[in-house]
């Protein structure tokens, strides 16, 4: 037993780019054993060069990753997954096109072996505005987006930069509770969607894949000084930092350790009571154009506990 396995729930309508994204994440798993859960294999086109072997309901993928179909019994499939040896480090759960990812995440939260890392919903930049006005799908699309902490606006390369910017601004206004970021060719820094890459494994390289690296900035800070936890929480909740993800451990004035988790707009700062000692430190990631690392360091400095 090695604790709960984090799960990223990936939602979005048919054609939103879930498959492209999953392939990208598998290619850049960076040594993590990812388990991809899909509704059915037919819909799932794992790139052929990644596949090592295929059985009835399990595909073995290069680098120790796997892909399983869960069909109509997600819970059964997840239970089997937890029993695998070695256990996966992280699960990517791809929902069906009309599923609401929030309830799926709720179901994952009921399972003793898993923990929801984040809910990401994909929106196809070429179609999302038509879908949210569709006679049959409008409310489903809005409900999917409302469930997201991170919305990936995909296929922005297909509509040109100015329309892409306009669509992104429109989307951000429509989904105020989530962080929206543009994606082309499925290239997103895996650390944004796979919290396990942040912090849990210090030995992992955090360098993002080339295409994504140009878009994202990752900031790693040692955080040796004690912080005012309440002030830090307030700071992280503010939208102006442009943070997409952050993870790590900080110390308060009396030396107690707190775990920090930021996923989009969701901030969790909680006492870390595990027996294992941890190294204080914070890793933060944001889009280059909206995340200013210098500003972030300054803001953090303000939450430092001064005097006693």
């Amino acid at each position: 037993m090695t604790g709960r396995i984090p799960v990223t729930v990936i939602g979005g309508y048919l054609g939103a780019g879930k498959t492209t994204l999953v392939n990208h994440l598998l290619r850049h798993a960076g040594g993590l054993r990812l388990a991809v859960m899909v509704n059915d294999f037919g819909a799932m086109a794992i790139d052929a060069d990644l596949i090592e072997a295929q059985e009835e309901d399990l595909i073995s993928i290069a680098g120790g990753c796997i892909c399983c179909s869960f069909g109509s019994d997600l819970i059964e499939a997840m239970a089997k997954l937890a029993e695998r040896s070695p256990r996966p480090d992280h699960v990517l759960l791809e929902t069906s096109g009309v599923a609401l990812p929030g309830p799926v995440a709720g179901t994952v939260s009921l399972l003793p072996d898993f923990d929801v890392d984040c809910v990401a919903v994909l929106a196809d930049a070429t179609r999302i505005r038509a879908l949210v006005a569709d006679r049959y799908l409008a409310d489903t699309m809005d409900r999917q987006l409302a469930d997201a902490q991170i919305v990936l606006l995909t296929k922005t390369d297909c509509i040109g930069p100015s329309l892409a910017d306009e669509t992104l601004a429109w989307l951000s206004g429509r989904v105020p509770g989530a962080r929206c970021l543009p994606v082309s060719n499925g290239a997103v820094d895996p650390a944004v969607l796979i919290g396990a890459r942040l912090g849990y494994r210090a030995t992992l390289s955090l360098s993002a894949p080339h295409q994504a690296a140009m878009l994202y900035h990752t900031e790693s800070l040692p955080m040796v000084e004690p912080l005012d936890i309440a002030a830090l929480t307030t700071l992280l909740q503010g939208a102006d930092l442009g943070l997409l993800r952050a993870k790590g451990f900080v110390r308060n004035a009396v030396g107690q350790i707190y775990g920090v988790q930021v996923v989009g707009t969701v901030v969790r700062v909680e006492r870390h009571l595990a027996p294992r000692p941890v190294e204080p430190g914070l890793i933060a990631i944001g889009l280059r154009r909206s995340f200013d690392p210098a500003l972030f360091r300054q803001a953090l400095a303000v939450t430092r506990v001064t005097g006693d």
């Binding site: 309508y13 048919l14 054609g15 069906s96 096109g97 009309v98 609401l100 049959y136 799908l137 409310d139 489903t140």
Partner: peptide, 10 residues
């Protein structure tokens, strides 16, 4: 409103 159990496209 309730839920779609299949995507219209499908």
């Amino acid at each position: 409103n309730g839920l779609w159990y299949i995507a219209p496209q499908r």
